[in-house]
Simulated assay, not measured.
Amino acid sequence: MRILGIESSCDDTGIAIYDSERGILADALYSQLSHQKYGGVVPELASRDHIQKVIPLISAVLEAAQLKSEDIDGIAYTKGPGLAGALMVGATIAQGLGFAWKIPTIGVHHLEGHLLAPMLAEPAPSFPFLALLISGGHTQIISVRTLGDYEILGESLDDAVGEAFDKTAKLLGLPYPGGPHLEKLAQNGNAKKFQFPRPLLHREDLNFSFSGLKTHVANVIHKTELSDENKADIAAQFEETIADILCKKMHRALLQTGISRLVVAGGVSANLTLRKALSALAEKEECHIYFPPLKYCTDNGAMIAYAGAQRLMRDEKSDFSIQVRPRWPLSELKAPEKSA
C-alpha cells in the first residue's frame, strides 16, 4: 500500500509517500521563512504559504518516487491539532485529491505522527513503549500500549519545552526559530557559570513546569551584561537544566511503569545535548532508547504518511467532508477496531 502524506499543521509544509513494504519512497519539506521577522508564526501567512506549496510539493514527490497519481492507494493528512487555517489547506487538498483519484483518505492526529516517527528508523521500537514527546507545543510522558492506545502519565502544566527554548533564545537576541540557534550557541558555553532552578523535581508525579524557569532566565539576562561569552554560558546552563529535568522525570517514569523501551520524539528530540543525556539514562537503566531520524523530528509528511498507513491498513478511512480539529487531545484518540 502506498500512502501520500500531507502535513500542514503549522509553518512547515511536509509531503511524503510511504510504501508499506519499502518504507519512505520520497519526501519533501518546505519550512516557511516569512515568520522570522515577526519572531513567531503568523497564522494567516502560514495558511497562504501552504496554499502555494502543497500542490507543487506533491508533484515533486511523485516525480522523485517515479510514481503517478494512479499508483497512490490512499492519502493521509494532518487533521489536528494545529492552526485552523493551515490545517484546512491540507485537509481540503487531501479530500479533493482523494475524491478525484477515487482513493480513501484519513485524517491523522499530529501527535500520533510524532509518536510513530521512530518507526521510520532502524531499529524500530515495538509496542509497548514509554514515550517522551517534546516539541514547541507539547511536553508529555505517554504510555504507548499499541496503535491508538495512549495514556498520558505526565505533561507540562504551562509552557512546552520547545516554547521555553524559543522564548529563551529570543531573550538572548537569537533569530526565530530559536531552539537550533540556542543549541549552537551553548556549544561554546560554560554551563557551570550560572545555576538555574529545576521546577517540580521535588514532586513525585510526572508533570513538568517551565514557566518559572523561563522567568528566572529572563531575570538573569536582564541583570547580566550580555557579552558573547555570557550568552553562551546562559545557553549552556539552560540546556543542562532542561536535560536534567527531562532525565529525572523519565527516570521516575521508567521506575513507575517498568517499561524497558523508551521513545523520544517531537521537534526538540533533534537536540543533540538532550539525546546524549537521555541515551546515558537509558544505558544506565538498561533499557532500549529510540529516536526518529533527525529529519523526521520536526513536523514532516513522512510521519503523517506512516501513521495514516497504519490506520488505512486497518480499514479506517474518512468520509470526504472537510473537518479539522485545531484542539484535539491525544486522550480522545481511539485504537482501530479489530476486524471480525
Rank of each mutant, 00 (worst) to 15 (best):
A164E: 03
I134H: 01
V41T: 09
I304N: 06
D319Y: 00
Y77K: 04
P104F: 04
Y296D: 02
T92V: 08
S227G: 13
M119H: 14
N271P: 01
F320G: 08
L272S: 15
A94N: 07
S69T: 15
S126D: 13
D19P: 02
I322L: 08
K37G: 08
G212C: 12
F127Q: 06
K184W: 03
A164H: 00
M1D: 10
N207V: 07
K68C: 07
N230V: 13
G107Y: 00
H288G: 08
L57P: 05
G98K: 01
S331L: 13
L25D: 09
S227H: 05
A65V: 04
D73M: 10
C297V: 01
Y77T: 09
E70P: 11
Q310V: 06
L97V: 06
K79P: 13
H202F: 10
Y18M: 08
R48S: 09
L278T: 02
L278Y: 05
Q140K: 13
I106G: 06
A340V: 14
R198T: 05
N188Y: 00
F129E: 03
L67A: 12
Y77I: 05
D149R: 14
A335C: 12
Y18T: 07
A28Q: 10
K248A: 14
A169C: 04
S47A: 15
M119D: 09
A305T: 02
L272R: 14
L171W: 06
A169Y: 07
D315R: 12
E163D: 11
E183N: 03
Y290P: 07
K338N: 15
G178D: 07
G154H: 07
P197Q: 04
E229N: 10
K295D: 13
E163R: 04
N271W: 01
T92P: 01
S8D: 11
Q52M: 12
K276R: 14
H222F: 03
E283F: 12
H222S: 15
G96V: 07
E240P: 01
V263C: 14
N300E: 10
F210D: 05
I93K: 00
L254D: 05
Y18P: 09
Q66H: 14
P293N: 09
H35R: 10
T146F: 08
D73Y: 08
G113T: 02
Q32G: 10
L274H: 12
A131G: 04
L262H: 12
S269W: 04
L67W: 09
L83W: 09
G308V: 00
L115S: 10
S9G: 12
R22D: 13
A253Q: 10
P81N: 12
L4T: 01
E112C: 08
E112K: 05
L153H: 10
N219K: 14
P177Y: 02
T105G: 06
L147V: 12
L246A: 09
L174G: 10
Y30I: 10
I221P: 09
S209E: 06
W101K: 05
K102F: 01
R327H: 13
L200R: 14
K231S: 12
E63W: 03
N190G: 02
K214W: 05
R311Q: 13
